Simulated assay, not measured.
Amino acid sequence: MLSRTADDVFWASRYIERAENLARLLEVADRMALMPAETDNTREWHSVLIAGGVEPLYLENHKQVTEDEALAFIALGPENPSSIYNCLKSARENARAQRHTITRELWEAINETWFTVRDMSFDTMEKKGRVEFIDWVKQRSHLVRGAIAGTMIRDDLYNFLRLGTFIERADSTARILDVKYHLILPEGAPVGGAADYYQWTALLQSVSAHVNYRRLFGEAVVPNRVAELLILRPEMPRSIRSCYDEIMRNLDMLSQDYGRRLPSQRIAGKLQSELKYGTVDEIFGYGLHEFLTRVVDRNIEVGAQIQRDFLLDSAPPEESQSQSQAMA
């Protein structure tokens, strides 16, 4: 496969997944902002800007963080290269370049999504309802993944589409989990208190994991169990472990196709082993925020190495940002 083709489909799937993940970050903030608080509830929206790695850019254009401005910036901001609006635009541009290689169903799913959001204003979104907008973004992402699963031949093109999805999802799960643990717990609120319980529950709901948590653990929502579910459990579709199982599966298939062992396999395999054999007690002993920071850093490294191994060796500008800028 030409590196240009691989690059286009890899980034198309990454941008679609990123749009969904940004919607989930917004959902976390929106749910948690509903909690009564003695302090300013804009902390929740500030935390999303930090977790999304766009706080410096936001502050260049805004004097302070407000709920409406943060929501508009992340959802529809044309000046924000990582907004949902720009992610869907970039996904469409990458898919359009490969209309001759992807199926009609996949192209139409991506193209129709962009045309719906292209002329949407913040007022239009608020009139329809922000929850409805968030759900719509997630549903369109599901539709795109369904078109990939249901219509694409299982060849190297399919492998690159899947790699883009799971590289992006691993990053998102780490960031969403870090929003709660590092930034959102109200000052002076006890761990295990009512606010803490509500926030962990809201986080689980935002990643479609609340029912799965109940099925697996059947107990009250507690931080260690939430972290175990979203980091280490292979049966949880959005867990970091599950993402890296999929990343390794697709890299192994590409390695067989290309007839050589790949540096990206080695880097991804090391992280997969840590997730496979690690324990939640070890993670909390190390520090959950520090662990998640390291995961995001190494995930960026894996994505960059995949770029060097197969694709055009130049990632979009926002990919070069350091982890310390994004989550510290």
Score class of each variant (00 low, 15 high):
Ala147Glu: 06
Ile74Phe: 05
Pro186Cys: 09
Arg118Thr: 03
Asp196Ser: 10
Ala268Pro: 01
Ile247Ala: 08
Leu271Glu: 05
Lys89Met: 05
Lys138Val: 11
Ser242Ile: 05
Asp281Arg: 10
Glu112Asp: 15
Thr113Ala: 02
Ala170Tyr: 08
Ala220Arg: 13
Tyr244Trp: 05
Tyr258Ala: 13
Arg214His: 13
Val144Ile: 08
Ala6Phe: 00
Glu318Pro: 08
Met120Leu: 12
Lys89Leu: 04
Ala220Val: 09
Arg4Trp: 11
Ser83Glu: 02
Thr66Asp: 05
Leu230Val: 11
Ser264Met: 03
Leu229Met: 14
Pro223Leu: 01
Leu22Lys: 05
Ala109Met: 04
Ile102Ala: 00
Thr5Glu: 07
Arg261Thr: 13
Asp7Tyr: 02
Asp178Thr: 00
His182Asn: 15
Gln64His: 10
Asn61Leu: 08
Thr165Asp: 12
Leu275Gln: 01
Arg96His: 09
Leu106Trp: 00
Val226Arg: 02
Ala97Gly: 04
Arg298Ala: 04
Asn299Cys: 06
Ser82Tyr: 03
Arg162Ser: 07
Arg43Gln: 14
Glu187Ala: 12
Gln272Lys: 13
Arg215Ile: 14
Ile267Asp: 03
Ile267Phe: 07
Gln64Trp: 12
Tyr15Phe: 14
Asp155Thr: 08
Val295Tyr: 10
Leu163Thr: 01
His210Tyr: 15
Ser314Asn: 14
Glu187Arg: 15
Thr201Phe: 11
Leu163Ala: 00
Ala19Gln: 01
Leu106Ile: 02
Leu312Ile: 03
Tyr197Cys: 14
Glu235Asn: 12
Leu183Val: 07
Arg233Gly: 04
Ser172Cys: 11
Thr151Leu: 07
Ala33Phe: 03
Leu106Thr: 01
Thr103Asn: 08
Ala170Arg: 08
Leu157Gln: 03
Gly53Lys: 07
Ile283Ala: 03
